[in-house]
C-alpha cells in the first residue's frame, strides 16, 4: 500500500503524471479501438472479421511471423553464442550490427530489402536464376519479418547466456558427458525461457510490422496482403468500424498467442 509520509517523496506527483500521460496517450485511443467495432453489432463484427480476405491476411501475418520467428531461434542463438562465448576481432562491430534492424527506420529497411531481393537485385538476381522468387511473394514477407525479429532473440538470450555458470558445464564434463551432450542437456534447457521470450517478442513485432514488409510484399489480396495493409485499405474506404475490427482481431489473436507462450514458459518449470 502506498504509505503516507513515505520517506522517499514524490509518489503522488509522479503517479498522477504517469496516469495522465498513460491515460491520454494510450488508454483513451485504445478504448476507441475496443469500442468502435461495437457499432457493427456482434453479428456484423463476426462477418467483418471472418471475410475470406481478412482471414487470408491474418493467416499471412500470423503464419509468416511465427515461421520467421521460429527460424530466428537457431539464428539468434548462434549469434548470441558467438558474441558471448568467443573473443575475436570485429566482435564489437558484430554486436552493434545486431541492433541495426531495431534502430533502422522501417521504410528504409523495407526499401533496402526490396532492392536486394527484387529480381534484378544483388541477391534476387542469382536466386531468380535458380527459379526462386522472393520479392513480391509471401517469402518476401517472411524475409522482412526475419530481419526485424533477429535482434529480439539475440538480446533476449545474451544476458542469460552470459550469466550461465560455467561450472554446470564442467560438472557435466566430469560426469562423462560429451560437449554436445552438455550443450543439449544442460545449456539449452537453461536458455529455453529466454528463447521463448525472444520468440514471443519477435513474433509480436513481426505480426504488426508494416514499413519493412509493405515494399517487399506483393500486396495482392488473398495472396500476399498483410493484415495491417488491410486496415489501411478499409480506412481509405471510410470503413472505420471494419478497420477497427481487423485491428481488434489482430490484438485478440496476439494476446492469445502471448498467453499461450506464457503458459508454456510456466509449464517448462516443473514445480
Amino acid at each position: 500500500m502506498p504509505r503516507r509520509c513515505d520517506a522517499v517523496p514524490g509518489f503522488g506527483f509522479s503517479l498522477s503524471v504517469t496516469l495522465l500521460w498513460l491515460g491520454g496517450l494510450v488508454l483513451l485511443p485504445l478504448l476507441a479501438l475496443l469500442l468502435r467495432p461495437a457499432e457493427l453489432g456482434p453479428a456484423g463484427l463476426w462477418h467483418s472479421v471472418t471475410e475470406p480476405r481478412v482471414l487470408a491476411a491474418l493467416r499471412l501475418s500470423f503464419g509468416a511471423a511465427l515461421a520467421a520467428s521460429a527460424l530466428n531461434l537457431p539464428l539468434g542463438l548462434l549469434v548470441a553464442w558467438v558474441l558471448v562465448r568467443y573473443r575475436f576481432p570485429g566482435r564489437g562491430l558484430l554486436d552493434a550490427a545486431v541492433d541495426l534492424p531495431f534502430a533502422l527506420p522501417t521504410a528504409v529497411a523495407g526499401l533496402a530489402l526490396t532492392a536486394l531481393y527484387a529480381p534484378n537485385g544483388w541477391i534476387g538476381a542469382p536466386l531468380a536464376a535458380l527459379g526462386l522468387k522472393v520479392a513480391y511473394t509471401p517469402l518476401g514477407v517472411g524475409l522482412a519479418m526475419l530481419f526485424v525479429g533477429l535482434p529480439f532473440v539475440v538480446r533476449s538470450v545474451e544476458p542469460v547466456l552470459r550469466d550461465l555458470p560455467r561450472e554446470a558445464e564442467e560438472a557435466a564434463a566430469t560426469l562423462g558427458a560429451t560437449r554436445a551432450q552438455a550443450l543439449w542437456r544442460v545449456v539449452l534447457p537453461a536458455l529455453a525461457p529466454a528463447l521463448l521470450a525472444g520468440f514471443a517478442m519477435a513474433s509480436a513485432r513481426a505480426i504488426g510490422e508494416y514499413g519493412s514488409v509493405i515494399f517487399i510484399a506483393g500486396n495482392m489480396p488473398m495472396v500476399s496482403e498483410i493484415a495491417p495493409l488491410l486496415i489501411v485499405t478499409r480506412l481509405e474506404q471510410f470503413d472505420y468500424a471494419g478497420a477497427a475490427a481487423v485491428g481488434l482481431a489482430m490484438l485478440a489473436l496476439s494476446f492469445l498467442m502471448l498467453l499461450a507462450l506464457n503458459l508454456a514458459r510456466r509449464l517448462w518449470r516443473p514445480a
Partner: peptide, 19 residues
Amino acid sequence: SVSPVISGLVWVLLFGAQG
C-alpha cells in the same frame, strides 16, 4: 507490442472525420 498501423488507426478513430 501493437502494430504501428493500429497506433495510427486509434487516432483516426478518435479524431478522424467519422471519429
